[in-house]
Structure formats: C-alpha cells, structure tokens
Design a binder for these strands. Structure first.
Length: 274
DNA sequence: CCCAAGACCTGGCGGC
DNA sequence: TGCCGCCAGGTCTTGG
C-alpha cells in the first residue's frame, strides 16, 4: 500500500494530531507483525512520555517520544487517531492511549508492517537501523546512482524497488516514474546513460511530489491520518491501465512482470530508442 | 555473487 | 450463491 507519498501524507496528517500528547498506556493485539511488537519495552519506557515529533525516512514513520518509535505500514498498515469510545477495527494491532482520551491506533490486515522501538534513542541507533537504507530520492545524485549500477544487470524497474539503492519508491511510482522519463522498465540498470539517470531522477521526484500534493494514491484501502482517501490514482499514466491508450501517443499500455511485480509501460514511448 | 522466486498474511475479485 | 485461483501498495530469506 503505502509508498513514500502515502507515508509522507500520513506523517503530515498525524503531526498536528499527536504532537504534544502524553502517552498513558499501550495495548496490542498480541498478533505477530513482520516482527514481534516490542510491547514490554514500550510499556517500560513510554507511559508519561510526550510525543515531540514525527518524521518520515524511506517508508518508515519515526515518532520521537522520549524513546524512538519506528513504524512501517507494510502493504495494508494504517495509523489514525481515534477516541477511546470508537471500537477498534477488525485488524487492530496496537494502540497508544493519550492522557486526553484519544489514542493512536495501528491497523493492518495483512500484518506485513512492523513496529520497532528504541527506549533511549541516539543518532547511532537510528543510523544503524537505516544503515542499509539508500538515500531519499530528493538527496540522490544521478552520477552516483549510475556508478552504483555500473554492473547491475537487473532491469531498471527492479532496481528502483531496491531500497538500498534509493529509498521510498514502490511498485506504483516505479512504473509511473519510468513512463515519465520515457525509459523502458526492462532495460538493464547498467545500460542507462548518465542523461537517462538524470531524467529518471527528475521524473521520480516530480511524480512523488505530485502524489504528495494529491495526498497519495488509494487503490483499495489506503487512507490518510484522517481516514480519507488520496486521489493521485486519478493521475496514473500507466499503473493499472493495461490496454488503455497512452496519454502521449495513444498506444495501448502494456503490462508485464518484472522481478515478480506487475509493471506497466507504453511500448512506444518507452520503446527501443525513445 | 547475482538475481529470481518464494514466504509471510488477509481480502477482494473474476471465472466457472 | 459458492468455491477456487489469482492478485494486491513491501520487505526479507532462500536457492539455483
């Protein structure tokens, strides 16, 4: 579900709802997410703490609250602020109850998400957590990416999904960015010229920024911190548009699988020598 | 070493 | 209507 724009949208939406709130209690469903939820550690450190800040890094949310709470939403994770009276949803997994009666809740039907916690956060702990994580798209350098991919035979579409190379890009925005840059998703990453890397990086940042302005993309279940849908899906040029005409040339959008993931592209605009 | 495939989960959809 | 297979926004591990 959530790629960089969706996580960024949730981050911005949650900030005014949770900053300054004091955590009183924490409860979980007891079900396993990708990793066990560190309930004991959180209960030992968080009650009485105030939330000072929320930020995003890659597809993770970082909540500074004395300790550092790191939350990944997986495919179907959702965070929102509710009142204590509102019954928890079917896929409730964690809640952080505040002194004012409101609570931050985490729901996740597929349970691919993750909640990690550092009781005494240090820059070092955070650095270690993100040690293998690539730079934010906005911080990427085309020449450096080209150099890192010099021997990478994997298709560029698959490379974009590798968070160690560049952070935050998921399956939707990989296809959308490659279309905007007019680059064939099947092209080996090593085959991109420097000018193609520049074009691609610019396209990625444009697409991500436009999606953030739209509040992200809602395919089936993504909602923001206010439980409202995004609308960047109205602006998809290729994703989930197989068979429909390319908005640029009218050719039918094609669908294929790259590294096991559905990939959408215009065979003409993103063809051999476009 | 590199890369594709599989695994982890639940739910929704199309086909029969 | 119901059952079945397939598909889905993401990582992580396995194995060829």
């Amino acid at each position: 579900m959530p790629e960089l724009p969706e996580v960024e949208t949730i981050c911005r939406g949650l900030a005014p709802l949770i900053i300054g709130k004091t955590i009183v209690t924490i409860e979980t469903s007891g079900k396993l997410l990708r990793q066990p939820v560190p309930l004991d550690e959180m209960r030992a450190a968080l009650p009485g703490q105030t939330i000072n800040a929320i930020r995003r890094r890659a597809k993770y949310l970082l909540i500074e609250c004395g300790g550092l709470l790191i939350i990944h939403l997986g495919m179907t994770g959702n965070l929102g602020v509710f009142t204590a009276e509102q019954p928890p949803g079917k896929h409730f997994h964690a809640r952080f109850c505040f002194a004012d009666g409101q609570e931050l809740r985490y729901h996740d039907s597929r349970r691919f998400g993750r909640i990690a916690f550092f009781p005494a956060p240090s820059a070092t702990a955070e650095q270690q957590f993100f040690a293998a994580c690539g730079p934010e798209p906005v911080d990427c350098d085309a020449a450096l990416l080209a150099e890192k991919c010099r021997r990478l035979q994997t298709p560029i579409k698959a490379a974009l999904l590798n968070g160690a190379l560049i952070a935050g890009i998921g399956n939707i925005y990989a296809s959308e960015s490659l279309f905007r840059a007019r680059i064939d998703p099947k092209l080996a990453a090593s085959a991109l010229t420097l000018s193609e890397w520049r074009r691609l990086l610019a396209a990625i940042n444009e697409v991500l920024n436009e999606a953030i302005v739209c509040g992200g993309s809602t395919i089936s279940d993504y909602v923001n911190a206010e439980q409202k849908s995004g609308y960047f899906q109205m602006h998809f040029t290729v994703y989930d548009r197989a068979g429909q005409p390319c908005q640029h040339c009218g050719t039918a959008i094609a669908q294929t699988k790259i590294a096991g993931r559905s990939t959408f592209f215009c065979p003409k605009c993103q063809g051999e020598n476009s």
